[in-house]
């Protein structure tokens, strides 16, 4: 079967620096990938490249077997959703209006909203626990509420590939676990989802998340891309990549690992 996303021999540069070179990935439906590396290692640039917002210096990205370059932005947006680190609200709208923007790639009517899109947007707000804020102006929200709204917009988009840039930013520790379960339920293919969406996406979405939180990635990701710097990357199963030596090399500091109640935790020494 064609993988959902294939990256083939990517070379990404930022000015004179090489962010990654010769990077190849095969992301299948239902997989959960973690993207780790120091600040400035190129996590965001890689995510943007996979979303088609940035052209790699070398190499290609294939979505369902088709090169991104051969697809229109609208075609990509029907499949790929991207959570950005920052949002702009110079001309603010309400929370509900913003969540509805997530339906943009799927909406054919240029003027009127249909009931299904509204239901999907409300559902996304409910899942993120911000339905009571629906009529509030976006610029009156706190940082954490904005992050939940950005996630609600992403869920409303119903992508088959979720690219998340620091999804746990601004979120309370107590909400991080439910959030992760929510995102994983996207990856597993939630039966609730298939009732509303008529297309045959029952296999579940794939998730690729960039995060600075090694423990979050260790807990929820089955595959890891570790960006070490100078273009070197380690790609593989989480258990193989997340070792003390690899992490120490990537983060330039000694890192120790402990097992507790069936979980693996890493902490800097």
């Amino acid at each position: 079967m064609t993988p959902l996303l294939t990256a083939d021999n990517l070379l990404l540069c930022a000015g004179p620096r090489t962010l990654c070179s010769g990077l190849s990935l095969r992301v299948e439906q239902g997989q959960r990938w973690g993207l780790l590396g120091k600040n400035g290692a190129g996590k965001t640039s890689l995510l943007h490249t996979l979303a088609g917002l940035r052209t790699p210096r070398e190499g290609t990205v294939l979505l369902d077997g088709t090169p991104l370059a051969a697809l229109s932005p609208a075609q990509i947006a029907e499949v790929v959703g991207l959570l950005l680190q920052e949002s702009v609200d110079a001309l603010p709208s309400t929370v509900l209006e913003t969540a509805l923007l997530g339906r943009h790639p799927h909406t054919k009517n240029r003027l009127f909203d249909n009931a299904e899109d509204l239901a999907i947007a409300h559902e996304a707000l409910r899942k993120l626990g911000i339905e009571s804020l629906a009529q509030r102006a976006v610029n009156s929200l706190s940082g954490g509420e904005r992050q939940r709204l950005a996630l609600a917009m992403l869920l409303a988009q119903r992508p088959r590939l979720l690219l998340l840039d620091e999804p746990s930013n601004h979120l309370d520790l107590g909400f991080q676990t439910p959030l992760i379960h929510l995102l994983l339920s996207q990856a597993r293919g939630n039966p609730e989802e298939t009732i509303i969406s008529s297309d045959s996406v029952s296999q579940g979405a794939a998730v690729i998340m960039a995060t600075h939180d090694i423990n979050l990635a260790a807990r929820v990701c089955d595959n890891i891309v570790l960006m070490i710097g100078d273009g070197e990357t380690l790609v593989g199963k989480a258990v193989d990549v997340l070792t003390e030596e690899n992490l120490a090399k990537a983060y330039d500091c000694p890192i120790a690992r402990v097992e507790n109640e069936g979980r693996t935790l890493f902490y800097p020494l």
Partner: peptide, 23 residues
Amino acid sequence: LRAARSLNVLVRGDLVAASLGVH
């Protein structure tokens, strides 16, 4: 008016708009 929906998205930033399929 034809582009009104896209303008709603563009207001949220170029990257948001591009990731939602706006040219």
